[in-house]
Design a protein around this nucleic acid. Structure first.
Length: 370
DNA sequence: GCGACAG
DNA sequence: ATCTTGTCGC
């Protein structure tokens, strides 16, 4: 069996007490990015505008530009947080989710003396404000991921596990409601039989941003797994719908969960986040390694005949070979995903859909005055 | 229109 | 992830 490259490098970074403390703080609190983005709007002077990109940079990563757009679109206090001041980098005024739509957005901007023709600001540079004072939360979270990756162990499992669980998260929201998440836990024995289920539901404030998925799903997954652990049903290994070390900073959500709970975790995804692997002609159960700057961080595997490949990576307290060896026998012939993840997905997506329908009914009844 | 980074 | 009809194939 080959040694995974890079194990030594991952484990040799120093950890100070303060770094440990920062990582531990994730257990209790993740920044409210929605709130921070909205509050940045209060810094924009009258007669000025900013862009989705500039706000993302102020939050600490331009990759968050689309998430900024989603946050603005979900702004339920347009009087308090002036999201009409956010436009495309091209000068295009863009959409406005508050009453009146883009026409209202244009009217509000013109009222502040901004020149607009054909839905586009004329001479954006004259009005552009980018000098935000910000703690740059995404920059801090990246640093946290770097530190967390140093705490990952990629040693093989100490002994054969007796149980494996899968976890997944589904989302939903009603009209004018904040986004809610349902997390599902499916506990299986090594024969692949389900022996227990659990779900947890709560509001989410952190948007999806590529490479920051952990901060969106960690709060609810920690709550779920702490609850399961409390009743003695925590599996020997937990499979997560997301990456382990197959991540630009070796810090996918499976690694976050594994380090924070000090348990073995495996990451499973349906698409490749980063790295290189040749997928052409991949046979069923054939293993091809994903390379990230020369390092083996994961593997592409097809679990069934017709299925597209999935991507497996160790999260914590397991090596890549062990992660693959544990995943293969938990595949069913007719599904793309291994059973623990598939069942967890079924569980939480059904619950989320029921939640959506339930709130829709409530909404109808409210509208009917019942 | 192109390119497009897990869920 | 979610929004979504029918359709093709094992």
């Amino acid at each position: 069996m080959k040694e995974p490259q890079g194990r030594a490098r991952i484990n040799t970074r120093g950890e100070s007490a303060t770094e440990e403390g920062k990582i531990e703080s994730l257990r209790l609190q993740v920044p409210d990015l929605r709130r921070e983005a909205l509050e940045l709007l209060l810094q924009i002077p009258k007669g000025k505008v900013t862009t989705y990109h500039a706000l993302a940079v102020a939050l600490g990563d331009e990759a968050a530009a689309r998430a900024v757009g989603q946050i603005m679109a979900a702004n339920d206090q347009p009087e308090r947080f002036p999201c009409y001041k956010v436009v495309h980098s091209s000068g295009e005024v863009g959409a406005y989710s508050a009453p009146g739509g883009s026409a209202a957005k244009i009217a509000k901007l013109r009222a502040e003396g901004i020149e607009i023709q054909d839905g586009r600001i004329v001479g954006l540079h004259r009005y552009l404000f980018t000098d935000f004072k910000s703690s740059r939360p995404l920059e801090q979270l990246r640093a946290l991921q770097e530190e967390l990756s140093a705490a990952i162990s990629l040693e093989p499992l100490p002994k054969e596990p007796k149980t494996v669980a899968g976890v997944d998260v589904a989302y939903g929201r009603g009209e004018g409601e904040r986004e809610r998440a349902v997390a599902g836990y499916a506990l299986l024995d090594l024969a692949g039989r389900a022996v227990g289920f659990e779900t947890v539901e709560r509001e989410v404030a952190f948007p999806y941003i590529p490479t920051y998925l952990a901060f969106r799903e960690l709060p609810i997954l920690l709550e779920l797994l702490e609850r399961v652990r409390g009743v003695g049903k925590l599996a020997d290994v937990v499979m997560v719908d997301g990456n382990g070390i197959l991540h630009p900073r070796h810090a996918g959500i499976a690694s976050h969960l594994g380090v924070l709970l000090d348990i073995p975790t495996i990451g499973i995804t349906k698409s490749l986040l980063c790295g290189q692997v040749e997928l052409a002609g991949l046979g069923v159960r054939e293993v091809r390694y994903v390379l990230l700057s020369g390092e083996r961080v994961g593997a592409a595997v097809r679990l069934s005949e017709r299925a597209q490949p999935i991507f497996i990576s160790p999260g914590n307290k397991i090596d890549l070979e062990g992660a693959i060896e544990l995943t293969l026998p938990l595949a069913s012939s007719s599904h793309r995903l291994p059973e623990p993840i598939r069942l967890a997905h079924e569980l939480c997506s059904a619950a989320a859909q029921q939640g959506r329908e339930g709130r829709r009914e409530e909404g109808k009844q409210m509208a009917l005055g019942l």
